[in-house]
Every structure is written in structure tokens, then in C-alpha cells.
Design a protein around this nucleic acid. Structure first.
Length: 340
DNA sequence: CAAGGATA
DNA sequence: TATCCTTGG
């Protein structure tokens, strides 16, 4: 599960419109994963093409990017590279959860409980061969740039906000803040409704902005202290955190003692944790250095062709959406022309 | 998730 | 017209 910084952060409601003309570095895995988890048929199975290849992530990317481009938002997708070796415990943990979810899914199916089936199917979500390639191919057709991070994608996304090449980084995970992202935007989508895990009740989910400096100020911490606070709570690199330490206790400890080494009550546990290496992952992350982010032209026909001919999307449906995008951009450039 | 038809 | 519900592949 990610890092539970939520209770400590100032999160401000925002809207997609305030990102017009801004470059936003999107955590590609995070976005694709979300699509894979949520875009499913009635029994919890993915959408697929006639060859049985999953297409849920492509559907998600198609419509979301149409919306971004329509609004003049400039998305840049950042893909994960090789995870730091310290992440292996967390990765193993996630695998185990998926394994258990698979069993529960099958049980729910044979019991005929479709609601449960869906729930557990979502938890089995995993990235398969080809999905990254599919996604990159679609982005290329859109003319949307994508960046390969050497290691954690969030680290590279954060660095783009620091160099000023991106206005914000978009992800659901709070790790971005430890990586120093100037702005993190969560729920970077415009559909407000999201169903609660349990019942058929819905809640409004709006984009929210988390500003780095504002948060350091409000917490009264330096970035180093924030990273130590994160380690106390538990990061992907020490997923279990510390016993009986949650967000509130963590920040209290750091405020009082400033650094992990100086908190008396955790010294025994601290010996088991490579905290210095974890600090380094967040404070001196390995990131891609990018000269200039280049946006290309959208190949409208190419997108229709790829999706309808190769992935069995309805040609009509894709065409309608692409035409709407084209029209809206033409209109925009016309009003701009009139201006000059 | 996002679109679009159904519904009131 | 605004919200609900189903569908997409």
C-alpha cells in the first residue's frame, strides 16, 4: 500500500480546468493500473480484443487523453524503470495479496456473488507483457510524450516539477512528496463520481492539489525531516514501518527529536532498517534528465485505425470521440488566430 | 473510468 | 434538463 501521509497533508480542492496550458507529469503505471483495476465487465473481467488481449487500459487512456487535450492540458507520461532492490519486500507483499485475491475471486464466482467477484478481481490487477507497449503506441499516435524513468517513475516526475519542465506531478501515491514534487495532484480526472467499496453509494471525488512548500511550512518540517517521518510511517522500502507508529506519532517524534537516530524509543527497530539508503532514494533519486519535452501532432486517422482494426474497438465510437477532439481544437486555434 | 442512452 | 445505469472490448 503506499505511504500514509494523508492525515498530515494540506490538500486543496482543485479542478481540471486550472491545468489548461500546463504540463503535467503523469505517473504512467499508476494511471494504467487504475484503469486495469476499474474498467471491467460485469463479472469483473477485463475488456479484451478478439485475440484475448486486455484493452481496459487502452480505453481509459483514450478517453482521458481526449479530455486532457480538449482542455489544453499537456500530459507527459512517466514510466517506471527498474525498482530499487529495497522494494522487493513490498513487491513480494503485493504479489501475495494478489494471490489471495485470486482465490477469493474464484470462490465468489462459484458462489455467484458478482459484487464480491468484481471486488476481488480488482485486487488481482497486474501489469502484463504488452500493456506498456500498447500504452506507448497510443500515446505516440496522440503525439503525447512519454519518458522512461531509470528507476521510480514518481522520482522522475517529481524532478520535472523541480526543473520547471512540468507544473505538477499526477499520481495517487504520496511518495511524490518525499521525492520533492513541487505540486502533486491526485484524482487527476474530471469524472466526479466514484463508488464506495461496499455499497452502491457514490462520493464526489475531485482533483486535489498538494503543494510541497506549503506543506513543509504547515508541518514545520524540513524535507529531510519529512522523509524521516515517512520512513517512520512506512514506505515501499520499509513497508512495515515501525511498531505502534502511525502518521501522528511519527510527526510528533520527528518534531521532538529531528532525526531517526535521535529517537530513543525506536533505536532497536532502527537497526533492522537500512534507513540511510532509504533516505537516499528519496533525497537523491535516480532520475531521467530531459532536455526538452516535445509534443507532437495527433494522428486522428491512425488512432481510429489502430483501435478499430487491431484492437476491435467500435470504429464509430472512436471516430466520434476523435472528431469531437479535432473540432474542439480547430475551434480553439481559430479563436486564437482572430486574436492576432 | 468515461460515454451515452434510459429515465423521470 | 439533470441524474441513473449500463456498456465498452
Amino acid at each position: 500500500m503506499g505511504l500514509d501521509l494523508k492525515p498530515l497533508l494540506v490538500r486543496e480542492k482543485t479542478q481540471l480546468e486550472s491545468f489548461t496550458n500546463k504540463v503535467v507529469a503523469i505517473d504512467a503505471y499508476n494511471a494504467i493500473y487504475q484503469f486495469l483495476a476499474i474498467i471491467r465487465g460485469p463479472e469483473g473481467l477485463h475488456l479484451t480484443d478478439s485475440q484475448g488481449r486486455v484493452t481496459s487500459h487502452i480505453t481509459g487512456l483514450l478517453f482521458r487523453n481526449i479530455n486532457f487535450l480538449t482542455m489544453g492540458i499537456k500530459p507527459v507520461y512517466v514510466f517506471d524503470g527498474k525498482p530499487p532492490s529495497l522494494k522487493s519486500a513490498e513487491i513480494e507483499k503485493r504479489k501475495q495479496i494478489k494471490k489471495e485475491a485470486t482465490v477469493k475471486y474464484e470462490k465468489a464466482i462459484s458462489a455467484g456473488d458478482m459484487e464480491d467477484a468484481r471486488k476481488y478481481a480488482q485486487q488481482t490487477t497486474s501489469m502484463r507483457d504488452g500493456m506498456v507497449e500498447d500504452s506507448k503506441k497510443l500515446l505516440d499516435l496522440f503525439g503525447i510524450p512519454h519518458i522512461q524513468a531509470p528507476s521510480e517513475g514518481e522520482a522522475t516526475a517529481a524532478s520535472l516539477t523541480i526543473t520547471g519542465q512540468a507544473f505538477a506531478s499526477a499520481s495517487q501515491d504520496f511518495d511524490s512528496i518525499l521525492f520533492g514534487a513541487k505540486r502533486l495532484v491526485r484524482n487527476f480526472t474530471n469524472s466526479g463520481r466514484r463508488k464506495l467499496p461496499n455499497r452502491n453509494s457514490y462520493i464526489e471525488v475531485l482533483p486535489e492539489m498538494i503543494e510541497f512548500q506549503k506543506n513543509l511550512d504547515s508541518m514545520g518540517l524540513t524535507r529531510q525531516e519529512l522523509v524521516d517521518t515517512g520512513i517512520l510511517i512506512g514506505t515501499d522500502f520499509n513497508p512495515d514501518g515501525f511498531e505502534r507508529v502511525g502518521p501522528k506519532t511519527a510527526i510528533k517524534m520527528i518534531k521532538q527529536h529531528k532525526r531517526l537516530e535521535d529517537i530513543p524509543q525506536i533505536q532497536e527497530q532502527l537497526e533492522q532498517i537500512p534507513f540511510d539508503q532509504i533516505r537516499k532514494i528519496f533525497l537523491e533519486p535516480e532520475v531521467a534528465k530531459i532536455d526538452k519535452i516535445e509534443f507532437g501532432e495527433t494522428d486522428y486517422e491512425g488512432i481510429v485505425k489502430y483501435l478499430s482494426e487491431e484492437r476491435d474497438f467500435s470504429k464509430d465510437r472512436v471516430e466520434t470521440s476523435m472528431n469531437r477532439l479535432k473540432k474542439s481544437l480547430e475551434k480553439k486555434s481559430q479563436t486564437l488566430d482572430q486574436f492576432f
